[in-house]
Structures are given as structure tokens and as C-alpha cells.
């Protein structure tokens, strides 16, 4: 590309102009969700019941929190957080293990705090020391997971019965508390990402780190904060699961980092930074939940979930890359 362009490319559609591409990109996620639901209603009459749909969401709400954090990480150009399973495990184990010491509410908060500290370690190393995020979170993930295994010796920690525990595991106005949590957190963080200076910094840092630094954007803080936030949300994820199922093990969040990345990518957030939205990630979480439920309803063995999800992600990314190149956005 030359520095001098007297005739600017049309590029991505300007706001307020409707083009086939822009309509498609806005509607593709709702369309995919509707298509999956129609498909599901053909496969099984029990699919389109409120009960089933709530259950579907309930199963993915906790990991959805980690996906929301991963959206910040991706947008600010931090690629991905591979230490999510470790922070989920820390949150879950501390939230249950500390119950007898400080009571269930404080234990839950402590779990979230410990997971946030894991995120802080990532954040400092990635944001301030400027080490590659994949390497940092791979290392911290192994380290924290190893630490959690040392703590419980490979055993299972069980929850003490408590009013708080039953509340978290139960329903509020007919909807599981986990689902409420997911949507409330998603709404708040959607506003943070789209309407606050911190959110704006994430886009700027992911879009052009050097230019952001030269524009007095706190680039190091922004990247670090995205990882602290993901640690915190992973902790919440662990606490929710542990209290819902009444027990916690170090492998409680195994594979969640990939579920989170999948939701982010399916939603259309660029893993290379600069673009993305929480609402899109929520859409990605819902699509993943529907796919896994459909697999169960069709009667395929559960491992096919990975096969189906993987295929869909590759297809989505390939089509997206093709469309982008054709419209000249890249």
C-alpha cells in the first residue's frame, strides 16, 4: 500500500449505509441462532421448550463469563488467555475449601480474588514486561493448575450446605442464577467495552499499539487490565460451577480456554485485535450451547461436539476471511 492515496478506497461501509456485507455481518449471528433452533425443533419436539432452552443456556453460562473476558483480551491484541482453566479451578477450589473458615459468601469472594491475582500475574508479565501472551498464560496456567493439585492432592472438595450455596445453584424468577449472572455481567461489560474510555483504549491498543502509545493511551495498563478482568471472570466461572454442582476438582475447567476462544471467534471478534463486541461473544456462546444440545438430541456421542464445533469455527473463519478480502478490507 502506498502512503499517498488520492482516491480513498471504499473500504468497509461507512456507518449508516446499508450494503449486503454490512447487513450480513449484523444479522449473521441472530440468523445462525434461528437456523439452529429451527433445526433443533425438527430433530426433537422437546427442543423448543422453555425448559430445554434454559437448560442449554445454564450449561454454558459459567464458561460464557470466561468468554466475555477473552473478548477484552482479543480486542486489545492480547490474543488469548490459556490460563482460564487454572483460574477457574482456583476460584472453585478456594470458594469451597474456604467455606468452613470464612463462611460461604466470603469464600466465594476469596475464590474470585485469588483467580484475579492469577490474572494480575498474567497482566503484569504481558502488559508491563511485554512477554508473549500465549507463553505467559501457558506457563501460568500450568503453574496454577499444579498449585491447585498440590492443594487438594488430586481429591475432590465438597461444598458445605448453605443458603448462599442453594441460592447460587437455584433459580430466580424461573431462570437459573447462573444465567442471570451471565447476562448481567455481559450487559455491564458490553457497556464498559463500547462506551467507556477503557473500552476505547482496548480497541486502540489492539488496532495499533505504537500509535496508541504515541497518543498517550495507557497501553501497558490496558493490556494488563484485560487479563486481570479475564482472571476475575474465570474465578466467577469457577465459583458458579462449584456451588451449582456442590463440588470442585482441579480439572473443573479443563478445555474452557478453547470454548471461550471459540465463542469469541464465532461471534466475529478478531483474535488479532482492534475489532469485536461483547454482544457478539454472547451470540457465540449461545451458538455453541445450541450445537452441543443438538448433538445430544440427535443422539450422537458427546465427543462429536468437538467435531461439529471445530468444523463450524473453521468454516466461519474461512468465509469471514474470504469476504473481508473480497470487500478489500484487508
Amino acid at each position: 500500500m502506498s502512503l499517498v492515496k488520492s482516491d480513498p478506497n471504499p473500504g468497509p461501509a461507512p456507518a449508516g449505509t446499508l450494503t449486503a456485507g454490512s447487513v450480513l455481518s449484523v444479522l449473521s449471528i441472530p440468523l445462525a441462532i434461528v437456523a439452529l433452533m429451527v433445526l433443533g425443533s425438527f430433530v426433537s419436539p422437546s427442543f423448543l421448550t422453555a425448559r430445554n432452552l434454559v437448560n442449554i443456556l445454564n450449561a454454558y453460562s459459567a464458561v460464557g463469563l470466561a468468554a466475555i473476558g477473552s473478548t477484552f483480551v482479543a480486542v486489545c491484541g492480547g490474543l488469548a488467555d490459556l490460563s482460564i482453566p487454572a483460574n477457574v479451578a482456583m476460584g472453585a477450589l478456594v470458594a469451597l475449601g474456604a467455606q468452613t473458615l470464612v463462611g460461604p459468601v466470603a469464600a466465594a469472594l476469596l475464590g474470585i480474588l485469588v483467580a484475579s491475582l492469577g490474572g494480575l500475574v498474567n497482566g503484569v508479565l504481558i502488559g508491563y514486561v511485554r512477554i508473549n501472551p500465549i507463553i505467559v498464560t501457558l506457563g501460568s496456567g500450568f503453574l496454577l493448575l499444579g498449585l491447585s493439585q498440590l492443594l487438594v492432592g488430586g481429591g475432590i472438595v465438597y461444598s458445605e450446605p448453605s443458603a448462599f450455596g442453594s441460592f447460587v445453584a437455584g433459580n430466580l424468577l424461573g431462570v437459573p442464577v447462573a444465567v442471570w449472572t451471565f447476562f448481567v455481567v455481559a450487559l455491564i461489560l458490553h457497556i464498559v467495552l463500547s462506551r467507556t474510555p477503557f473500552g476505547r483504549w482496548n480497541f486502540a491498543v489492539g488496532g495499533n499499539y505504537e500509535a496508541s502509545a504515541a497518543s498517550a493511551v495507557p497501553v501497558r495498563f490496558t493490556r494488563a487490565a484485560a487479563f486481570v478482568l479475564t482472571g476475575l471472570l474465570s474465578g466467577m466461572c469457577g465459583v458458579l460451577i462449584a456451588l451449582s454442582i456442590g463440588q470442585a476438582r482441579p480439572i473443573i475447567g479443563a478445555g474452557y480456554e478453547f470454548v471461550a476462544i471459540s465463542a469469541v471467534v464465532l461471534g466475529g471478534t478478531s483474535l488479532f485485535g482492534g475489532r469485536g463486541s461483547i454482544l457478539r461473544t454472547v451470540g457465540g456462546v449461545i451458538i455453541l450451547a445450541l450445537i452441543s444440545n443438538l448433538i445430544v438430541l440427535i443422539g450422537l456421542p458427546t465427543p462429536s461436539t468437538g467435531l461439529a464445533t471445530g468444523t463450524i469455527i473453521l468454516l466461519v473463519v474461512a468465509v469471514d476471511a474470504y469476504l473481508r478480502r473480497r470487500t478489500g478490507a484487508e
Partner: peptide
């Protein structure tokens, strides 16, 4: 070091 190409002019302006 001058621009964030994907962000709109408005957001570049107020960075």
C-alpha cells in the same frame, strides 16, 4: 505511530 486504521476518524481524534 499516527493512526489506528480500523477505528473511525472520530475515535482517532479523541484518543
Amino acid at each position: 505511530e499516527g493512526i489506528v486504521p480500523d477505528l473511525p476518524v472520530r475515535e482517532n481524534f479523541t484518543l
